[in-house]
Nucleic acid binder design. Structure first.
Lengths: 198, 198
DNA sequence: GTCTATAAGAAGATAGAC
DNA sequence: GTCTATCTTCTTATAGAC
């Protein structure tokens, strides 16, 4: 099965590239870096991919397709608003656990890459994410699960940034599981760090 | 006064470079980009600076010297632990307001640049920041101002990341002052977003 | 699927004139 | 303090052999 073998090699190279892009940044990673890490010469990469750009494009698209499918599942469920928010937070940390490189690349490069036509879908996904969270939070306030005086827009940005920034220090397989981090995060987010009644 | 005029021009160029580094990233900004924005040719930049690297170095050093002087002042004060934490948070948002470009550059590039000997001081400053916050939070727990069961290390990373990430969307002079953001942030952080008693 | 060889352009930096 | 002119190196990408 030549196609399957070819596909595996593609995935392997993509995984190597993702690790380097995440660690050093897209621009700081040369095609020679990727080829070296894969044990081949830089020209050989072009048998598998059109360009360095198309590599990062494929990494980001694959990751985002999966992530937003998961968000859609939460939105479509009939859980109560607070449970939906918790689920959305948990699946985000799970995503950091499963695809740390893709998350890191997205966090570090999306702003810059999004300015190019080829990566316009990054801005669309950003708007889609905003819709998901604004819906969850607005429902939370309307049903009384969240404080009535909550600034929903500010809270959306707060959650978005604070969840995904964990990719900077979280290491899969380390002492702290993504479930434990999600629990701690939800505790801080939903109950605050001030002493009860303090 | 040739020195003063020279110094202003230096600062002007540094400010232009900082804006580009913050917007596009260090590696994505060429010396030609900087020169174009300043209305001169790229070669002329080297009358003022040794290299592109020395420009970002000066930007980051200046910013960090000021920031850590402010932290030291809070630490040395005789405010109670909760007030110190609030002050540290407020001065961080003020720093984002005053030096948004330097903060953005630090957030985006410190991890990568810190790997080079020349930028080793970035790792030192990182450790120093950790010490500041661990001290503030440990004091907070010991005096009963913060929950006794708080994971201090996790909370430190949480505060560090959540405060500085605001540089991604905060715009000085916009509808929201840095003081207002600090207040909202402290409300979420210290009281949580859950309904009282919910 | 990888290698050899190389083209084409971009980027950081320099020397000396003005 | 800036410009002209240019060097060198790095980087992406290509063509064709194996």
């Amino acid at each position: 099965m030549p196609e399957q073998s070819s596909a595996s090699r593609r995935d392997e190279l993509l995984s190597i590239a993702a690790g380097l892009f995440a660690e050093k940044g897209f621009k700081n990673t040369t095609v020679r870096d990727i080829a070296d890490a894969a044990g081949i010469l830089s020209g050989s990469l072009y048998h598998h991919f059109d360009s360095k750009e198309s590599m990062v494009d494929e990494i980001l698209r694959t990751f985002q397709d999966e992530l937003f499918a998961a968000y859609d599942e939460v939105l479509a469920s009939d859980d109560d608003p607070r449970t939906k928010i918790e689920r959305a937070v948990r699946l985000s940390f799970e995503s950091i656990d499963q695809h740390p490189n893709a998350v890191a690349i997205f966090q570090n490069e999306a702003d810059y890459l999004g300015g190019f036509e080829r990566f316009g879908y990054l801005a669309e996904r950003n708007a889609q994410s905003r819709n998901v969270w604004m819906t969850l939070l607005t429902d939370g306030v309307e049903t009384g699960a969240l404080r009535a005086d909550l600034d929903v827009t500010l809270t959306y940005r707060f959650i978005r940034d604070t969840v995904w920034v964990a990719v900077r220090w979280y290491r899969p397989g380390g002492g702290l599981s993504h479930e434990a981090i999600a629990n701690q995060y939800l505790t801080i987010l939903l109950d605050g760090i001030a002493r009860d009644g303090g």
